[in-house]
Write a protein that binds this DNA or RNA. Structure first.
Lengths: 204, 204
DNA sequence: TTATTAATTTACCGATTAGTACAAAATAAT
DNA sequence: ATTATTTTGTACTAATCGGTAAATTAATAA
């Protein structure tokens, strides 16, 4: 027995799957950026004609927002999960390591969609850029809180400044996207993480 | 006495000064990036018509190359001068500090032209992107050499790895451009430099 | 079989892109 | 004054951009 029947909607069925379309669009946006990904690029990669794409996603901007949401709640979810780590050391190590994993997920490494999109001119006009900057800022504040706790529980040196440390970590995190684009190897960047951890100001 | 006379060229005199035009174009390219700076943007900012710009600079790509050269040998010259510092600590501090000065040189902070241009899709097609990546890579190698010397002369911990340290510094350096774009204050970033210096693995 | 619904295809739109042909204007050399 | 030379301004091109109108096709519901 086949269990529940799939209730098909009324009209002509869709030629494509929205979820996989979003994944393909994600790769395109990561590779070329929002500004330089044309509707032509998208329809070719998705094997769609333009009106179908518009019927399904609205326009280029709303499509990008759907891609963003899928990215944030999917491959980039580690970004928030990491806040549950016990020690600040492990948190930083996991954050940077998983970030690198994601950058090198595809055959050719791409930058982080969120990080690189904050440098987009066209997204600045739409307000999406500011929304992304704010999200990153909020995340940074959560890092500050974590480091403050770590300091109070004696994990970090008493001279440690949680604000400065958080800025330090997110600056490294953003730098990783550019390094991946610039051709650094995954191994080199993972060694860089080790370096950061070795320098991390744990209490002696 | 006026000394040498200015020998005027043959035809109709130029309406504009090439050097100041390059400065204006530099600001535009830093603000909007190569891809999103249109000929319309350039001619409006320079108060030129298009054929004049083409006669003087060739095309958009060669104009950008001239801007790049002026940038590298001008405001960004610190990037190479820094290699003459005596201690590795001072070198890193100066590199990052002067980088921040440059990012905040204008009223609104822009990213480094070289760093951000390595993420340009259109410059990738021209080969200029690879040229910039190579230049950054060469600079990184010089940092490695400096750190190797610092290690041999006992300035750095004997456990220090010059390769990893160089990658660490340039990753921070690239991250600074994104931070400036994302709204970090100059003061916060300078405090971040202090943080980096405090963590720097000097020999005890 | 017929009506309804929705996604398809083809063909187009105005705006903008980088780049250019051509003639008028401004200077120096003759 | 005339000629040679160079830059200027006006007007254009072909290509591409994001987005859409209208007709067609394919499915379900009645």
């Amino acid at each position: 027995m086949s269990g529940e029947q799939i209730k098909r909607p009324r009209g002509r069925p869709r030629k494509f799957d929205k979820a996989v379309a979003l994944k393909i669009a994600l790769d395109l946006f990561r590779q070329k950026g929002f500004d330089n990904t044309s509707l032509e690029d998208l329809t070719r990669a998705l094997d769609l004609n333009r009106p179908s794409l518009y019927a399904a996603f609205g326009n280029k901007e709303t499509l990008f927002q759907e891609v963003l949401q899928a990215y944030i709640s999917g491959p980039s979810a580690y970004f928030h999960e990491v806040l549950n780590e016990h020690s600040s050391t492990e948190m930083v190590r996991t954050l940077l390591t998983k970030s690198i994993e994601l950058l090198f997920y595809n055959e050719t490494p791409y930058g982080c969609l969120v990080v690189m999109s904050t440098a987009s001119e066209q997204l600045q006009k739409t307000g999406i850029q500011q929304q992304l900057v704010n999200a990153l800022q909020t995340h940074q504040q959560k890092l500050v809180a974590c480091f403050e706790r770590a300091k109070q529980t004696g994990q970090l040196k008493h001279t440690a400044d949680p604000e400065r440390l958080a800025l330090y970590v997110v600056t490294l995190h953003k730098g990783l996207s550019l390094q991946a684009i610039n051709g650094s190897s995954k191994e080199a960047l993972l060694a860089l993480v080790d370096q950061v951890i070795e320098l991390w100001p744990v209490a002696t």
